[in-house]
Design a protein around this nucleic acid. Sequence first.
RNA 1: GGGGGAGUAUCCAAGCGGUCAACGGAUGGCGCCUGUAAAGCGUCCGGCUCAGCCUUCGCAGGUUCGAAUCCUGCCUCCCCCA
Length: 387
Amino acid sequence: MADLTRNAVDVLPAGMLQEQLDAGAPLRVKLGIDPTTPDIHLGHTVVLEKLREFQQAGHQVVLIVGDFTARVGDPSGRSAQRPMPSPEEIEANAATYQEQAFKVLDRERTEVRFNSEWLRMEPEELLGLLAQTTVARLIERDDFQKRLAAGAPIAALELLYPLLQGYDSVAVEADLELGGTDQKFNLLFGRDIQTAYGQKSQSILTMPILVGTDGAKKMSKSLGNYIGVTEAPEEMFGKTMRVPDEAMPEYFRLVLGGEPPASLPPNEAKRALARGIVERFHNAAAAEAAEQHFNRLFVERGAPDEVEELNLSPFADDGGGEVHLPALMAAAFDISSSEARRLIKQGGAKLDGETIPSDTLDLAQSALDGRVLQAGKRRFRRLQATG
RNA sequence: GGGGGAGUAUCCAAGCGGUCAACGGAUGGCGCCUGUAAAGCGUCCGGCUCAGCCUUCGCAGGUUCGAAUCCUGCCUCCCCCA
């Protein structure tokens, strides 16, 4: 029991989960995820990890893919209405979500349900569901109170969200529902809906929200401060190294389920964290390679093992074989030629590690052939004249 | 149904006839420092083979030598009253 509530923020109602566990029967443990973005990131895994713990303790995990609720928009933690993904996006996301969730969960022992299965209900049934609450109950949540105070809009659809999520609990007869702390209102609301439908109310357990790589805001795709579970090892490692020191303990606890190493200097600890994360979602060999890659780029300031090649020939002019660098860099790094000029001017462009003089705009093809062109610290292309 | 307000670059947000590629902030890029942390300093941040030119301020027209700024229509959004 102590294990199962580790790191949890709220376990409500007080004592209920303990009683449920003491009763001995496996619990039906629910988690709903709305497929609003294509990928699962470390923030999602905090709750998934907890779900896995219940799974390992022999409980029945029910993963709900919110293909229907994704079209409604969960107002939790939102200060504004979110843009709605298209049905096609939702469908595509739903597929990748499941795949990625099984990087944490045991596929064989997970019941996966799509909530469109029961939420595509008859209008009469929907009215029945709506009859279970009042507007006052729906807007009492903090998210809405803030928006009301600020004169910001609240979409009617958002108002309905908790009812639908609550109905999910009815549909799968959940004994326990997990979620982030921002889900507290919705989770508790589900209890009332279950009661209204003559079921026993679930208990709820909330997990902390993982802070993003910026160390300030919650990890989220739209804020661009996330680490995706399917990202390449090098990316994962690099992004983790950028996490501010203060956030490290949190990452150790919530992502790796451990404790921050006591006596390691900060940069060693962070390396351990980065290795741990890559190992968790890839493997030990990948972690090793990712760290070497990191060392080469940022400690030795060198080029990575494998550098993508770029054919130099199309950029050389017919006459003297001069290459216009802004155009070349624009193509090589998918930036504008103006940006390339800026990089050169500010000493951010290098050839084989040598800074290109800031007033250079053209170079002979022969001076470029076979060398590694670099923009900033992390973008590389090996130039190769062919044909 | 009535009244009021807003749409400016990645985001926030100034500008309200020329000096506007458009103040300021945030985010971000690059460089120095360094542990790709934090703090700090400098610099850049529409595009273009760039001392110049081109395209931008919801959309479409119009007025004017000249419009992000004025006029007309349209679209979208928000607030208040009912």
